[in-house]
Structures are given as structure tokens and as C-alpha cells.
Design a protein around this nucleic acid. Structure first.
Lengths: 97, 97
DNA sequence: ATCGTATTTAGATAGTTGTCTAACTATCTA
DNA sequence: TAGATAGTTAGACAACTATCTAAATACGAT
């Protein structure tokens, strides 16, 4: 769940698409897999990467596994990105670095 | 300069560090290279990737090449990221799904 | 217990990426 | 023009990643 995990996770277009689908609401692994032209195994791999970055959460519901977007971490990622540029421009002074 | 170019560019820790250094002000290729434990050739490769994503701009100044952060694109990237989550949360209604 | 459905894990493979050294290009100075 | 300095480009290589098929696991129903 490091910054690196997050940036790696969102560097793949399929995974970004998954996140986009999930922002329309939670979906089962199967539902998500249907939306893509790749095998279920490959999708499962992508889920694992997204989970490692904590961008999604999973919950078993009977035979299915429901994936839910973790909006908090996604917002954190955006913050990390904005952190790469002078946020306050002239207003903020950074102590370290 | 696609979204993919941008996300690929920031997926590497060295390149993120370069961006961070550049937010302290423009630097020459040599100055940037000094700050890292990799060869100048490797650094040059990273500059090329960042340039392809339009995250940095280059300008030759005599024998040196000065790199400058393109804050606009970095902000765009953050926006793209936030685009992956429901911005209005409860306020927005989506037609499909 | 066995079967069927849903999903993940294992193992293999092709393509991508980060790194290196060596060679090349560009600019300045003498 | 020759030499020195600053960077990039070319080619090779190891490590990583996305993908696949096949096998394994988890759950529910019969």
C-alpha cells in the first residue's frame, strides 16, 4: 500500500478502467471480467494488484466476490501527484527536503 | 502526451523524484543526473519519457539542457486521477448502470 | 459426498522497461 | 580545426509484467 504500489496499479489502462467501472458502484469479479476482453485469470491478477495498493476492497458474498472502490486511497493518490508540484506556489514553505 | 504516457511516466520512482526536484526550480540535465545513483544515459532515458508525457520541457542553454516542470500537465494528471472516482459523490446522478 | 459455479493460483511465455557501456552529436573555447 | 564538456542515442541484457491455459480452492445445492 505504498505510493509505489498505487502508481504501479494505476499505470495499467485495464486497471484504470476497472476503477472507472467501480465508481459506478460495487461489482462482482465476474461482472467486471465480462466487461473486458481478457481471461478471468488475468482479471483476477489485476484485482490483486489493485488490492495490494488498497485501491479496492473485496468482500465475499456467497460464491461471489464483490469489489468496491476505496475512494480514500484514490484521493490520496491524487494528492501524492499534486505533491509533486509546488502546491501553494509561493505561499507554502516546506521544512524538510 | 496521452493519459497513458502520463501514468506510465509517473509510475517510476526515479522519475517522480526528478519531478520533485524540478518543483524546486529548473535544473540542467547534469545537475539532475548528479542527484541520482544511475548513469547519465539512464537519466537521459527518464528525461525522454517525462518529455513524451509533456511533464517536463527542455531548453538548450549553451552546452547545457535545462529542464523545467510543466505544472499544467501534472495538475491534469491529478485531475485524471480524481476522474476515476465519483466526484460529486451523492450530488451527481449517472444515466447508465 | 458430489456436482456446478465463481474465482484464484500456478506455471509458462512474449513483450516491456530500466539499466549499463560505448559511441555519437552539439556546443564552446583555444 | 582540435579538444573538452554536456547530453543523447544505440545496442545488449536482466528483471518485471500482462497474458494465457490448466489446475486448484471456495461455496452452495442436490
Amino acid at each position: 500500500m505504498s505510493a509505489q504500489d498505487i502508481f504501479k496499479a494505476i499505470s495499467d489502462p485495464t486497471r484504470r478502467q476497472i476503477l472507472k467501472l467501480l465508481h459506478g458502484g460495487s461489482r462482482t469479479a465476474g461482472q467486471l471480467a465480462e466487461a473486458f476482453e481478457v481471461s478471468k485469470a488475468s482479471m483476477s491478477h489485476h484485482f490483486a494488484v489493485l488490492k495490494a495498493a488498497d485501491l479496492i476492497r473485496s468482500e465475499r458474498r456467497g460464491q461471489q466476490i464483490v469489489y468496491t472502490l476505496n475512494t480514500t486511497v484514490l484521493q490520496d493518490a491524487a494528492t501524492l501527484l499534486l505533491d509533486l508540484l509546488p502546491r501553494g506556489l509561493a505561499r507554502r514553505r516546506r521544512a524538510g527536503t
